[in-house]
Simulated scan of single mutants.
Amino acid sequence: MFIGRPFIYAAAIGGIPGVRKAIDLLNAEILRNMGLLGINKIEEVTSDLLIDAPP
């Protein structure tokens, strides 16, 4: 997963508060997607819930 770049941008533009905001956004996205999948814990993610990204 390529999540490092947004945190570098957040640090460059907003410093520590920017990185915290980026973390909050990522956390909200993960929780929303888990809700859409009908799961409550990350341990419930199984291979049948995942798809390969297009090349």
Score class of each variant (00 low, 15 high):
Ala22Asp: 04
Asp52Asn: 12
Ile13Asp: 06
Arg20Ala: 01
Asp52Ser: 14
Pro6Val: 01
Thr46Ser: 15
Arg32Met: 15
Glu43Val: 01
Asn27Glu: 12
Ile13Gln: 04
Asn27Thr: 12
Met34Lys: 12
Asp24Glu: 00
Ala12Thr: 10
Asn27Gln: 05
Ala22His: 11
Ala11Trp: 04
Met1Ile: 09
Gly14Ile: 11
Leu36Phe: 12
Pro17Thr: 01
Glu29Asp: 08
Pro6Glu: 00
Ile23Met: 04
Gly14Met: 10
Ile23Glu: 03
Ile13Tyr: 03
Ser47Val: 07
Ala10Ser: 01
Ala11Thr: 04
Ile30Cys: 13
Met34Thr: 05
Asn40Met: 03
Asn33Ser: 14
Ile39Thr: 10
Ile42Gly: 13
Ser47Ile: 07
Asp24Ile: 14
Pro54Cys: 04
Gly35Leu: 08
Pro17Met: 03
Ile3Glu: 08
Asn33Val: 08
Ile39Gly: 02
Val19Tyr: 00
Val45Gln: 01
Gly15Ala: 08
Ile23Cys: 01
Ala28Cys: 13
Asn40Gly: 02
Gly15Leu: 15
Asn40Phe: 06
Leu31Asn: 06
Gly18His: 07
Val45Pro: 03
Arg32Gly: 04
Leu26Lys: 10
Gly14Val: 14
Pro55Thr: 12
Glu29Ile: 08
Ile42Glu: 09
Asp52Tyr: 13
Leu37His: 11
Ile23Ala: 02
Leu50Val: 11
Phe2Trp: 08
Gly15Thr: 11
Thr46Ala: 10
Ala12Asn: 05
Glu43Trp: 12
